[in-house]
Design a protein around this nucleic acid. Sequence first.
DNA 1: ATAGAACCGGAAACTGACATTCCGCTTAGG
DNA 2: CCTAAGCGGAATGTCAGTTTCCGGTTCTAT
Lengths: 169, 169
Amino acid sequence: MRADARRNRDRILEAARDAVAERGADAPMELIARRAGVGVGTLYRRFPDRAVLLAALAEQYVHELMDGLDRAVAAEPDAWAAVRAFVVHSVEKGRGAIAAALAGTSAPQARQALVQRLDALVRQAQADGAMRPDVGTGDLMELLNVFACHPGVIPERFLPLLLDGLSRR
Amino acid sequence: MRADARRNRDRILEAARDAVAERGADAPMELIARRAGVGVGTLYRRFPDRAVLLAALAEQYVHELMDGLDRAVAAEPDAWAAVRAFVVHSVEKGRGAIAAALAGTSAPQARQALVQRLDALVRQAQADGAMRPDVGTGDLMELLNVFACHPGVIPERFLPLLLDGLSRR
DNA sequence: ATAGAACCGGAAACTGACATTCCGCTTAGG
DNA sequence: CCTAAGCGGAATGTCAGTTTCCGGTTCTAT
């Protein structure tokens, strides 16, 4: 693979993430191409159709989340603190890929691994009495999704509120 | 206006609200008509275009919210309790009209009146030390919007979390 | 009962936004 | 300097919705 081709591929993924963030999973291919500074032809050469592109996006994003989770666990000995760090990290890095990643159809195995690791952490935090017991890991994912998909929900403004809501009173 | 025409008008508004809830502000006119048990022709006779329909929806909905607010204030002497009651009521009655109502373009005067009344209540609740001080009325509206637009955010599951997040720690 | 104004349904024509293809030109890199 | 790999973007095809229109139907006032 030629160097410029690789560069374009990365740009496309980046642009696709932004576009999906703003316009949802069916953002126009042409918009994605334009934002990547690339012709549609190039986009289609690299990703034969939207499903492939979305899958690549999801794959990449789930791995980023997994990394974030690992780092949070490593940095914070306390489970609840780790959950908080993960949420903050995910929301900030989130942008639009979440919509694709959590839609379910893409990258199911990687997604499941993430959910399992997160679930263990959540249960621990709840067992410690630090996190409210009536929210599940699925709810947490849903909330990340809201931040990613709903532009009006600005992290700086709503994250403190969410974290307080999630903690045990 | 003939009696059957009025009946159809009401049905269309009802159907439009549901359709907007599920498919967003650009739900197909044809879908709305079908759900109302009416031909597209009838829909267009009553509402020349989508903007008019959305405006009618917004108007109706903002008034419902206003009524809910009045009732909450009347029933609850405490400001924070009234805010809570209003939020619960709004989320439950919400469905999709919020998307249209809060989009901003429609029914600006009625909307503004609502925001003003709500704002006074919020400030009171915050002054009482019962509600967290770092959320504004606009944020509250945004949150209602999330419940209305995001089907995955089920009120029964997320409302307690939201209310806890909104209260002062 | 009945005239006729108001209303209705839904087929059909129109529209525009996107997806996808294709090919002549450009460029990396050995 | 050669050529395989890559590129852009005009052109074409597709389809979901919008909007119009008119022959038939239903109210309701008299």
